[in-house]
């Protein structure tokens, strides 16, 4: 699971959960897979990213990547920043671990790189 995937997931279908975002991440096994840099692609993705959630994920995983505290229009044109975003969003892969609902602590396993967000019927609101 890449961090871009994490950035799109919420747990608010759980009973009693209002936002369910961002999910916390715990990684037992991580990989770094290099992906060809495509400036246009990453620039197109960035406006769709919840930046604070991405920073929280980087922090949860203890990645040694410096993301500025806030995103701005100028940053979105900055090559250094785009390259860091490319690496953070597309190159790190959580192979084994879990996502955790921020409101209930419900755990969602990540296995072979794929998060399992399925719920029991009794858990759904």
């Amino acid at each position: 699971m890449k961090l871009i995937t994490h950035n799109m997931l919420t747990s608010n279908i759980l009973k009693g959960v209002t936002r369910g975002f961002p999910l916390k991440i715990k990684a037992d096994k991580m990989e770094h897979i290099s992906v060809d840099y495509n400036r246009d692609f990453i620039a197109r993705i960035i406006p769709r990213i919840e930046y604070d959630a991405l920073r929280a994920a980087v922090n949860d995983l203890g990645l040694n990547e410096s993301l500025p505290e806030a995103m701005s229009e100028t940053l979105q044109q900055d090559d250094e920043f785009l390259k860091t975003m490319h690496k953070v969003l597309l190159e790190y892969e959580v192979e084994e671990g879990e996502l955790i609902c921020p409101e209930t602590g419900r755990k969602f396993p990540i296995s072979k790189g794929i998060p399992n967000m399925l719920l029991q019927e009794t858990e759904v609101s």
Partner: peptide
């Protein structure tokens, strides 16, 4: 992005 889930449940919001 591949997710094991029921329809788009965890993705609808985003």
């Amino acid at each position: 992005n591949i997710i094991q889930c029921n329809l788009a449940d965890p993705l609808i919001d985003r």
